[in-house]
């Protein structure tokens, strides 16, 4: 059986199609936000929140919730807002607060899982929450629709507020001076970041989410020079890499999350080289 036939057989399974659709949408959200997060030096918040989401997941597991997404979503959004507020407070250093919350959530999450979990394979459970493993292939129908709905909202909000997000990202003081409610937009950015991270937990697991957010943007920034071009390009990179990653992982039987991130890294390499060649050509 050659690769294509194998692929077509797999694509006949509905769960594979769901995985592809949800995966691509999540990747799209992550890359759109990535541009703002990287440029605002907020990428550490993304990292911290992914650990918070891990802690929330373990709480949900302890409570034996069948549908853990709403709880995880709430906890992560609240933490996102808290982190943003402490980040603005000049007295507590923002990055220290993030480090505290994220490491704390990781430790407590693992502890809770160990103490309360009835599952015989705790290490396996933890590993799959951290690295995603196959959860994207085992989504329930509700989770699929919830993911599709939430990503549509994230993408919609990003498009509607695109110009304002640009203004606030480029020069927050100027934006404030001309009457843009920068704090509200920061809050909006933090909230949709939290939502995206919770969605992305299923795709790549909590340790690898930052990669999904950061790599497409950094790749696009090597080559393109305007905000719009970088945004569009990083969205395309992310969608293509995620699709490739999911397909490869299905065919080769590799873990989904790490395969996607590896494809992202390769792509970054290509863009890095292209950028270097372009710049050399200009001289």
């Amino acid at each position: 059986m050659n690769v294509f036939e194998k692929l077509i057989t797999y694509l006949e399974f509905p769960f594979v199609r769901y995985a592809l659709i949800v995966g691509v949408l999540i990747a799209l959200c992550a890359s759109l936000l990535g541009v703002t997060l990287v440029l605002k030096r907020f990428s550490f918040i993304g990292d911290g929140l992914s650990h918070v989401a891990f802690g929330a997941m373990s709480i949900a597991a302890v409570l034996k919730l069948t549908n853990n997404m709403p709880l995880v979503l709430c906890i992560t959004v609240v933490c996102a807002i808290l982190l943003l507020k402490t980040g603005q407070n000049t007295k507590i250093k923002g990055d220290a607060a993030v480090a505290m919350i994220s490491v704390g959530a990781l430790a407590i999450g693992y502890l809770l899982m160990n103490i309360f979990s009835a599952s015989p394979n705790i290490t396996g459970d933890v590993c799959s929450t951290l690295f995603g493993s196959t959860s994207i292939l085992s989504l329930s129908k509700t989770e699929v629709w919830l993911s599709i709905g939430l990503s549509a909202v994230v993408v919609g909000l990003f498009i509607v507020f695109y110009n304002k997000i640009f203004a606030v990202t480029f020069d927050e003081n100027f934006a404030k001076a001309t009457g843009i409610k920068a704090n509200i937009y920061n809050l909006l950015i933090a909230t949709i970041t939290a939502v995206t991270i919770v969605l992305a937990m299923n795709l790549v697991g909590s340790l690898l989410i930052s990669a999904l957010i950061i790599f497409p943007t950094l790749s696009a920034m090597r080559v393109f020079k305007s905000f719009r071009a970088v945004t569009v390009c990083s969205a395309c990179i992310s969608v293509v890499c995620t699709t490739l990653g999911i397909l490869i992982s299905i065919i080769a039987g590799t873990p989904v999350g790490s395969t996607i991130v590896t494809v992202d890294i390769l792509c970054f390499g290509i863009f890095f080289a292209t950028g270097a060649v372009c710049r050399a050509g200009h001289r």
């Binding site: 110009n163 304002k164 640009f166 480029f170 100027f174 934006a175 001309t178 020079k225 905000f227 719009r228």
Partner: peptide, 13 residues
Amino acid sequence: PASVKEIVLSGCQ
């Protein structure tokens, strides 16, 4: 990454 046009236009925000 921002072009001159994008920046000047953001003054109208």
